[in-house]
């Protein structure tokens, strides 16, 4: 997952609760200001599922497939976000106080 924006955005959104593809993208748009393109979004969903970081949360008969984050996914997301926070703190320290 490391350094993959699309996968991390999907995991971040799913940490709030199970959602289907379109709702995930709408939440990403609310978070970042732009939607992921279909190829990026569904490629990320397929990869996350194959790595066991997300899983289907509804029956196969549903028209829209809802997915949820797994415990492994939560652990991976937490580790990634903590690392990003450390990098962000170090970067902000190096930049010094913002000019007035």
């Amino acid at each position: 997952m490391r350094s993959n924006d699309a996968q991390m955005l999907v995991l971040t959104v799913l940490a709030q609760g199970p959602q289907h593809g379109y709702a995930i993208n709408t939440a990403i748009e609310a978070l970042t200001g732009s939607r992921l393109r279909p190829g990026s979004l569904y490629g990320a969903l397929a990869r996350l599922e194959s790595h066991g970081l997300i899983e289907p949360s509804s029956s196969d008969t549903d028209e829209r497939r809802t997915v949820r984050i797994t415990d492994t996914g939560r652990t991976a997301l937490r580790a990634e976000l903590e690392q990003m926070a450390r990098v962000a703190q170090a970067g902000l320290r190096a930049l010094g106080p913002a000019p007035a």
Binding site: G21, Y22, N25, R37, P38, G39, S40, Y42, G43
Partner: peptide
């Protein structure tokens, strides 16, 4: 089978500017 209808929805909403990314995504998969 898993995401087909969702991908179609996204492509229909995003329009032609999403076509290339959608095709590249298919190739990568």
């Amino acid at each position: 089978e898993r995401w087909g209808s969702d991908i179609a929805d996204e492509v229909d909403r995003a329009g032609p500017r999403s076509w290339f990314n959608t095709a590249v995504g298919a190739g990568k998969l």
